[in-house]
Amino acid sequence: MRSYRRDTVAVDGGDLTVGVWGDGGPLVVAAHGITSHHLAWGLVAPSVGLDHRFVAPDLRGRGRSRDLPGPYGMDRHAEDLAAVIRAHGERAVVVGHSMGCWAAIALARHEPELVERLVLVDGGPPLAPPPGVPAEPTADQVTRVITETIGQAYARLSMTFPDRAAYRDLWQAHPSLAEWNDAMTMYADYDLVDDGGVLRPACRLEAALRDARDLYAWQPVPPEPLPVPAIFLRAERGMLDQPEGLFAPGAAGRAFPGVVERDVPGTNHYTITLSPKGAADVVTAVRSGG
């Protein structure tokens, strides 16, 4: 990965680990998904980093930032993203994938002066919880909702693995990752950490469960324009490569009047960043805004 390095940014409670690609040019700050880490951008960042500075944190509770203390939640991640921007510049194009979109939106609403524009990659519009879930769900109900939404990616957080090969095997069996590539291998290898003598995924279960609460419209949410220009890239297929995407066509425009919405054909929720086709479309949106 060309001119890639890891660094840290001081945030409340300790140091946030960030991946950095590129040495100059406009600043891009990117936030990953709910159980992910900064190498979710492993195909996007090297290309953008040729003429930008692309900075992607391991969000609090994930990757090498897993030991940063809670509380979690989108407002907390927005504070951390603001610290990353201030450490590397004055204003940034802010990119989110999946949960990272909700964090990016929280940042734009709280501190719009830090955000030039948003690139929302298959995330951001409030998700509808399953029928019967109350407006103030219990921890068990949140667990059920997130399990139904992201399935295997959530279940792995309670698992341990004998070696990295076994962890790669788990990911390679995921229906969304049938066309395996080197970026996916690096993603899987980085995600596994030694925790007291056992290998487990880096994302802390309590972080994922708390953050999931902020993604759903537990009560009706009226449409509200975003405070900065934004583009929403919609994966054609879903979390498990099912034909229905995570978001229906037009969902972003209904939630955020005025947002530009584009479909990315031939991608699912994972391959919209972790495949050459999806990454190329994200790179175009980051560079040009369209």
Rank of each mutant, 00 (worst) to 15 (best):
146 I>K: 03
245 G>W: 10
159 M>R: 15
186 M>P: 01
223 P>S: 01
168 R>K: 04
248 A>G: 07
166 A>D: 15
243 P>M: 01
257 P>V: 10
183 A>P: 08
197 G>H: 11
169 D>P: 06
148 E>V: 01
260 V>P: 03
137 P>M: 00
263 D>I: 06
139 A>V: 06
270 Y>N: 14
171 W>G: 04
261 E>S: 05
139 A>Y: 04
150 I>Y: 04
229 P>E: 08
165 A>V: 11
269 H>S: 08
180 W>M: 09
187 Y>C: 00
171 W>C: 01
193 V>F: 14
200 R>V: 13
261 E>P: 00
162 P>R: 09
143 T>H: 11
240 L>F: 13
213 R>M: 09
137 P>R: 02
215 L>I: 06
150 I>Q: 07
221 V>P: 02
144 R>Y: 03
213 R>H: 07
144 R>E: 15
190 Y>V: 11
243 P>L: 10
224 E>Q: 08
183 A>D: 13
270 Y>Q: 15
255 A>N: 07
158 S>V: 11
249 P>A: 12
164 R>H: 15
199 L>G: 04
179 E>H: 15
195 D>M: 05
234 R>D: 08
267 T>N: 12
184 M>Q: 06
206 E>L: 10
254 R>M: 07
185 T>F: 02
228 V>G: 04
152 Q>S: 13
167 Y>H: 12
224 E>A: 14
273 T>S: 13
246 L>C: 10
268 N>V: 06
227 P>L: 02
155 A>C: 07
238 G>W: 12
172 Q>C: 10
149 T>F: 14
194 D>P: 14
200 R>Y: 07
198 V>C: 02
242 Q>C: 05
272 I>Q: 10
270 Y>G: 06
241 D>K: 04
156 R>K: 15
196 G>D: 13
199 L>C: 02
224 E>W: 00
275 S>V: 02
141 Q>R: 01
204 R>Q: 15
239 M>E: 11
267 T>W: 12
238 G>V: 10
189 D>Q: 01
153 A>W: 14
259 V>L: 11
253 G>H: 02
229 P>S: 05
